[in-house]
Nucleic acid binder design. Structure first.
Lengths: 223, 223
DNA sequence: AAAGGATGCCGCTATTCTGCCACAGCTCTG
DNA sequence: CAGAGCTGTGGCAGAATAGCGGCATCCTTT
């Protein structure tokens, strides 16, 4: 669920776009002037910025310029309709895309997704994510607990990753079997339990119970 | 000097845009229908495509779809003016940008530069790149380990390059086979293992395991 | 408290996967 | 056309591991 920072001095429009982005599954933060936009960008490290060019005091270009000194976050600029110059300046300053205002929210979403697809591809999605004290590196199929890499078999890793992607949520055995082992759960199938047992051993999971059993349902990772 | 492939059935317009792009320092290739576009894209591996949506027979979407099966090359689509739907479809299909037709050549250039800045960033398609202690020189298809050039066969080099481009990431056998050997992985196919065995020999990879086996998945280069 | 169902986990083995030798085509060179 | 190098297949041994039998244990329900 990517976070988008929306920087626009028109509060009404910003609220509306924010609403729409939320409904599309984005997490949205708002800033109503350039200075605030820069602050929030540095605090929140959002996955992308939507930046209005026309703002009082510090305009979109100024924000972009300041932003680029500390962040490579992708930026989509909202420009006045038909103003090619704005677009060109923006793009050459390092914006990733623009959209003429007033804009179609659906198109904004499509473009944001396109930008995110590009940038997330190279960065995060491949890197790693945390689940409690556990770091999961999908790229190298490794798990790290307290700076200690854990040596896991393929199935063990798969199960752990599935659990970790839903930290704090119970994952039922059917799902675990299908997503991690690639086969439907059959009656009297103890393989999941078996792997959980081994995972717990390897994680030294004796007391804290990182992996919790949810009797009659499945397992969950404590978050 | 990036190479741009221009796919447009309007020869006059294509020639004109090509001219302009050339004058901006791009190397330009032209294709005048979809089929030819796909062929040239695969032959030339350009750094970016400019793709007209509206073409007889195979249209821009069709080209994009076929293209994405073997290439992640960035694509800028030229759409009919004001047709939001085209743009949205294009972006969701994996295009990187679009421009309404008729387009301002200056803007086309600005956008191409923006796209290339993003994508070349990740490849840094320069002369060589490092992967752990290994230096890969795609230009001369050579690998160098500890200042020692390693003599590799074509397949061996291909495999190593694919692994090296994803140092620290597991690359599954299907991908290795398709990207390095250019054929799908078949059942009981031992060729990948065979090449890995030879690569390990040549790299003197006995203990450190530069090339690591990830059982049931594929191989990875230690990063 | 007792019974029944679910889970934990030891030990074991069938299965699957990989390393690599040998060899048979193939392709490229000269 | 011969030789050299490359690629990929067959085969086998050895390693890794998935998952079952089985029993102890735990939880829930009645």
């Amino acid at each position: 669920m990517p976070t988008i920072l929306l920087v626009d001095d028109d509060r009404e429009l910003a609220a509306m776009l924010g609403e729409y982005l939320s409904s599309e599954g984005f997490t949205v933060a708002l800033a109503h002037d350039g200075k605030q936009g820069i602050e929030k960008a540095s605090e929140l490290s959002p996955d992308a910025l939507v930046l209005d060019v026309m703002m009082p005091e510090l305009d979109g270009f100024g924000v972009l310029q300041a932003l680029r000194k500390f962040s490579q976050v992708p930026v989509l600029m909202l420009t006045a309709k038909g103003d090619d110059i704005d677009r060109i300046i923006g793009l050459e300053m390092g914006a990733d895309d623009y959209l003429p205002k007033p804009c179609n929210p659906r198109e904004l979403v499509a473009r944001l997704k396109a930008i995110l697809r590009r940038t997330q591809h190279q960065n995060s999605s491949a890197t790693s994510f945390m689940a409690g004290d556990l770091e999961i590196l999908p790229a190298s199929r490794q798990a790290i607990l307290n700076n200690q890499p854990i040596s896991l078999t393929s199935s063990e890793y798969n199960l752990l990753e599935v659990l970790a992607r839903q930290v704090g949520h119970v994952v039922d055995k059917e799902t675990l079997s299908e997503q991690a082992l690639g086969k439907p759960l059959t009656a009297y199938d103890r393989s999941i339990d078996m792997h959980m047992s081994k995972l717990r051993q390897k994680l030294g999971d004796d007391e804290q119970r990182i992996i919790q059993t949810v009797r009659g349902v499945g397992y969950q990772l404590t978050g």
